[in-house]
Amino acid sequence: MRLIKVLSFTFFFSSAVFAQSKNTGISVAKMQEIYEEVKTPYKYGLVMVPQDEQHKMDCPTVFREGKYWYMTYLIYSGRGYETWLSKSKDLLNWENMGRLMSFGDAGKWDDNQKAGYNALTSMKWGGNYKLGKFDGKYWMSYFGGKEKGYETEPLSIGMAYTDKQPWVVHEWTRMPEPVLSALDKDVRWWENRHKLFKSSVIEDKKKLTGHRFVMYYNAVGDSLENNKKTRWYERIGMAVSDDMQHWKRFKTEPVVHQPVGITGDGVIQKIKDTWVMFYFGAFWQDRKGGFNRFAASKDLVNWTDWTGDNLIESSEPYDELYAHKSFVIKHKGIVYHFYCAVNKKDQRGIAVATSKDLGKSNVGFVTPASK
């Protein structure tokens, strides 16, 4: 979803706050089993890159229809974010198709930021990964904003929909107002900095939360610890809905977070009877850079955090600055972990790592022009 800028933090934390973020609902043995199932030690490399230095790609979401795979992703242009679509036959070779949510509509709340993520994707591990419908429509959540530039506040979460085929390029219809905003009366303490970011919307058919639809989203908030205010924390929380249009926050506290830095961009898969949230971390106390991890849950509410090795971390020239922001699927026995790769020149593209050695990509970033 987002570009990470290196920030200077002074971190203060209490062991009590950190302990509350560590739920113990999943056994150590089960967490290890999940890790062994989802790990992808073979980096295939970049599969999507911008055509120039000015544009940056981010935040893949993958789904399937017929013989093709499709990926929605973001492009940041300097003005803001737009949402694009690409397709592939084999999950390794991708073709740009065009925009789904683009700049325009002067005077609207989301004029210059439209960062979208497909909703209601099939979450069955190793399943068909088709998009689901509700009320005769396909849905997409997105964060939007009226200001130009890099994540300029305020940023809020909106909903878009279409009754056309979502694998065909066309502009999606956006609801006229945000569904979640930092100005809402029920805004939580951990999202008070007017920046709500990536959202993932799933269908909870068993209504474990008491509602049909669940949204996981991350936001920026202050934290007051040891009597000193720290800024630029990001944490993952929840909202719920029964109609995809009206959302309300669920729980006062975030459901996945760390005592310092960023925890964000959660996406959900269900492996047997366990829900798995793939997410990224950055600027943690004990880990450098940006990296991908996971948490697990039996009820979609209480999450146990994996404490072992990162699933994805920087190791190659194309991801030497950050390797973060997950979308993970399993197809024909092979796990594909798509992520945003950032090199030290801040060039950003989409890469993939796999559970089986599939060779190496011949895709690379454009060579920076000499100055």
Rank of each mutant, 00 (worst) to 15 (best):
R2D: 08
R212I: 00
S8W: 11
P50I: 00
N112H: 15
D299F: 11
Y318Q: 09
K67T: 15
V352C: 10
G116P: 02
L196E: 01
F280H: 15
I262D: 09
G261S: 10
T304N: 00
F9G: 02
L85H: 02
V255C: 10
S370N: 14
M57N: 12
L155Y: 05
W284M: 14
V240M: 06
Y129N: 02
I350H: 02
L208F: 01
E234Q: 14
H211W: 03
I34S: 02
V62A: 06
S8E: 13
V28Q: 13
K288Y: 12
W94H: 01
A115T: 06
T173I: 14
I75D: 03
A106E: 15
Y138L: 08
V335H: 00
N93F: 03
L180Y: 05
P154Q: 12
K207Q: 09
Y70P: 06
V179N: 03
N112Q: 15
V62H: 06
V28I: 12
K207C: 01
V256P: 01
F11H: 11
V352R: 03
S199G: 03
I202E: 02
N310D: 15
T24M: 07
K130P: 00
S314Q: 13
V62Y: 04
V49Q: 00
C59Y: 06
V276H: 03
E253S: 09
D58N: 14
R348I: 13
L224F: 11
Y81H: 09
G359E: 08
E147A: 15
S21E: 06
A351T: 09
L208M: 12
S14D: 11
E65P: 08
P41W: 00
P154F: 12
K146T: 11
I4D: 02
P317N: 09
T10W: 07
R235N: 02
K164Y: 09
V6K: 15
N226Y: 09
W232T: 00
T24S: 12
V352L: 11
M244N: 00
F213R: 02
N362G: 08
W247I: 04
L46M: 05
D319W: 03
K288L: 13
G290Q: 08
V169L: 08
Y279N: 10
D204S: 07
R79G: 10
Y73S: 07
Y70M: 10
G126Y: 00
A369G: 11
G127H: 03
W84T: 00
V17F: 04
C340N: 06
M277R: 08
